[in-house]
Design a protein around this nucleic acid. Structure first.
Length: 391
RNA sequence: GUGGCCGUAGCUCAGUUGGCAGAGCAUCUCGCUGUGGCCGAGAGGGUCGAGGGUUCAAGCCCCUCCGGCCACC
């Protein structure tokens, strides 16, 4: 029901290519999961996702529990059937919402009109719904039951994600809670068609991270997730944490770095042995006008694209680049036309999913290091040039 | 013709007893990492309809003119 094989490794790197077999299909690793929090990847149909090469998508337990309600999803025949996506799905547990919606959280900018409150107790999490203000209390056991109802192929244990600047005492307490909850989730989880992944925490403290990595590994569940990164810390900090824990994680299980990321972070994490990723970046940035090219990130709203007859990216095979110019896409954005959001989303997802395919090919050929170096040299050069000579 | 109201940033408008010319939107940059299509940060943009007067100081008070709207002959 759930199998993971490592197929190829590349020299001088921990990067590896593999296959993950789960009830709704096979996934080629390393892979990126587009985010469909509320049961849809914003602006795209499942068919479009499939043709972009997405092999699995991510949805969110907290959001689906509030609306339409996990019990209703079960009545509809499960999330796959309801949303018309017959490929693999992973549901996040809602642990990240503890972090991003936490009262007084300053590391993330809370949306001013998104007045959700979260209180963490040893026994579970208290949420105030951002939809109707109702109060909900969820235990680790509840979170598993909700995910059973939603029916994803991979489900996540409840964890407590903390800000990067959390002190050691706070980080240790959140880690301990995350471990207790992981145990409770394991105990509550009984559906063999769903694989449960526990999550490593420990803040920016290496000894806590090591302790957490060992504890989570010892649970002997089908996969392992790394949480609490890409939450505002520097890239150097994130890579150091990865280098600290990756060597002590089991080699025969998929490793999932939650919430990452940017093209450069994906390659750096693959280099250190990570197999799975998810991130809002390609889809959210697309809706905000940003798009990726091999020479870095740009924004279609810039006035210099007003009369630009080139596609978003030269030699890009995506639908958007085949059919439309930058000037037209900019026009769609200035007119606030929905089509612009769709076309940009298609491009960014194509770019990132293609990057993952290229990385996999490079690993298979034993040339990942060269591939990474060549990609980053072009991609980051643009960012440096921008900093030095602002236009 | 007479009376009244109005004229301030590209647009819609604030502007206190006279005391450094303002906001929202738009424009132009930048940011966004287990999703609010938002949001945040910053920038540019003004002979305050024109001219004169009073005053240390006028968008504001006085006079003339121009333009717009309304009412009444």
């Amino acid at each position: 029901m759930f199998k993971f094989f490592v197929q190829a490794k590349s020299p001088n790197t921990s990067a590896r290519a593999g296959i993950l077999e789960i009830p709704h299909g096979k996934i080629h690793s390393p892979f990126f999961m587009p985010i469909g929090t509320t049961g849809f990847v914003k602006t795209l149909t499942p068919d479009e996702l499939k043709s972009l090469g997405a092999e699995i998508i991510l949805a969110n337990t907290y959001h689906l529990y509030l609306r339409p309600g996990d019990k209703n999803i079960k009545k509809f025949g499960g999330l796959h059937k309801w949303m018309g996506w017959n490929g693999p799905i992973l549901t996040d547990s809602g642990g990240y919402q503890i972090f991003s919606l936490y009262e007084g959280n300053t590391s993330h900018q809370n949306k001013s009109d998104f007045k959700t409150h979260v209180r963490v107790h040893d026994s579970g999490v208290e949420f105030k719904s951002h939809i109707d203000g109702s109060i909900h209390f969820l235990t680790p056991r509840d979170v598993i039951k909700i995910q059973n109802n939603i029916g994803a192929d991979i489900i996540m244990a409840l964890d407590e994600c903390i800000p990067h600047h959390a002190d050691k005492k706070y980080a240790a307490r959140a880690m301990k809670r995350t471990h207790d909850w992981a145990l409770q989730c394991k105990k509550a989880h009984k559906n063999p068609r769903q694989a449960l992944f526990p999550i490593i925490q420990g803040g920016m403290y290496k000894n806590l991270r090591i302790e957490s990595a060992k504890f989570i590994s010892d649970l002997d569940l089908p996969g392992i997730a790394i949480g609490g990164l890409s939450v505002g810390e520097t890239k150097k900090q994130m890579y150091e944490i990865l280098e600290t824990i990756m060597p002590i994680l089991p080699k025969n299980k998929p490793i999932y770095l939650m919430g990452v990321g940017s093209p450069e972070d994906l390659l750096e994490a693959i280099d250190r042995g990570v197999d799975m990723f998810d991130c809002v970046m390609p889809t959210r940035l697309a809706r905000h006008g940003s798009f990726w090219t091999l020479t870095g990130r740009r924004n279609i709203k810039n006035s210099k694209y007003r009369l630009d007859q080139k596609p978003l990216m030269e030699n890009c095979g995506c639908y958007t680049c085949q059919k439309f110019t930058r000037s037209y896409l900019r026009h769609l954005f200035t007119e606030h036309e929905t089509l612009g959001l769709r076309l940009m989303t298609i491009h960014n997802l194509h770019f990132l999913l293609n990057l993952m395919r290229d990385a996999r090919t490079a690993i298979t050929k034993g040339k990942f290091r060269q591939f990474k170096k060549a990609f980053l040299a072009k991609f980051k050069a643009h960012a440096v040039r921008r900093r030095r000579t602002p236009q």
